[in-house]
Nucleic acid binder design. Structure first.
Lengths: 199, 199
DNA sequence: CAGCTGACAGATTTCAATATCTGTCATTCC
DNA sequence: GGAATGACAGATATTGAAATCTGTCAGCTG
């Protein structure tokens, strides 16, 4: 128990919660554990988060936001043509998820449980943010005449859903298999060709 | 307990197993239950199926094969052009799964558990059969000059994986949502356009 | 007095004893 | 004699009592 006499903030609680989740897993990580890790009573934790699930949602959002930020850089890249940006963006999403899943499977499994719990709220918002990023790229490509697309938002949604297998944690086990890279390329090729074609 | 004095066959055991699964669900459906439903001792069931999981695999295969057969009709349809056949085949796959999921959610959940159990064996073979059917259509379209595709088998795999969300039981809950039809159309449009485009 | 504590009620989880199930096989039955 | 039985050992599941956890709040503390 490291009491660390600093003031108790939401931020410090989130850090401790991550650590407890990493150690105990999602099923056995309790609010009491988090409080103990911080050297405070569990009542203090409830001062910053109304419920245990609010705390879990906040931790999950934090984890997902790291990926959102990473990808934002590609949306903003000014020197890349739209087709390359679509490819790089989807490849970066796949690579980010895959790296996490392979580097620390147990932690990834923990967050997979958390995302399943919070599918309607936190994950829904995350997916909206991501498809908004994609929409931005598709819109730019349409404006530049590179893509022929009726409604960029609808097409961005289709791109995102067509690549579910390469970012949905449900498929994480597939990402270890030898052929995945090629499978991803095949899907991506088909989709990008679909963007280019005349309506 | 209907003893039905006919001879005990693998077929009759499979029918009884389906019934027990429907009534009890996957967790509580035991070999003893199946034997009781048939009015025989459980030892007799083991004469036809080496293990409980062999029995479950056989029932699952039966269920999946019904879909395979249904779709085979579209592959063989001689009066349809390749693009229509791709669209109809994927639409029929989605419709078949969706119908089952909405008509009897509990039974569908039961079979979802069974398919998860048998992912490596029975489901793997099922997916191979389905992608083989798709490959056939893509090959025909390529031969006819309608599609421009390097390797029909690879492209068929990409088509199948890009539409995972519309046939993988994992997404069954999404199939109730209002917008799904449109989402499916958007993905399908993008993919079909990708098939048509020049390499 | 703002922040923290710890005791509390009700909900959930754990654990160990008990019951049931799986898979085998010597024996029985037509 | 080929098919079916049922007793059995080890594995798995169920159950209910005890332990722990969640969320609240009156009171302590600096």
């Amino acid at each position: 128990m490291p009491p660390t006499s600093e003031t108790l903030t939401a931020e410090r609680i989130l850090e401790a919660t991550e650590e407890v989740l990493r150690r105990h897993g999602p099923a056995k990580a309790t609010v009491v554990d988090v409080a103990r890790a911080l050297g405070v009573s569990h009542g203090s934790v409830y001062r910053h988060f109304r419920t245990k699930s609010a705390l879990r949602e906040a931790v999950t959002k934090r984890w997902l936001d790291r990926t959102t930020e990473l990808l934002a850089a590609i949306v903003a890249a000014p020197d890349l043509d739209p087709e390359t940006r679509v490819r790089e963006w989807l490849a970066a999403l796949f690579a980010a998820k895959r790296r996490k899943a392979l580097a620390d499977p147990e932690l990834f499994a923990t967050y997979s449980v958390l995302t399943t719990e919070t599918a309607e709220t936190v994950v829904g918002a995350h997916i909206t943010e991501l498809t908004d990023q994609l929409t931005e790229i598709v819109r730019a490509g349409t404006a530049a005449g590179t893509f022929t697309v009726d409604d960029p938002a609808v097409t961005a949604g289709a791109l995102f859903r067509a690549t579910d297998r390469f970012h949905d944690p449900h498929y994480a086990r597939e990402w270890e298999r030898p052929g995945v890279e090629g499978e991803f390329e095949a899907v991506l090729d088909l989709l990008v060709r679909g963007l280019r074609a005349a309506a």
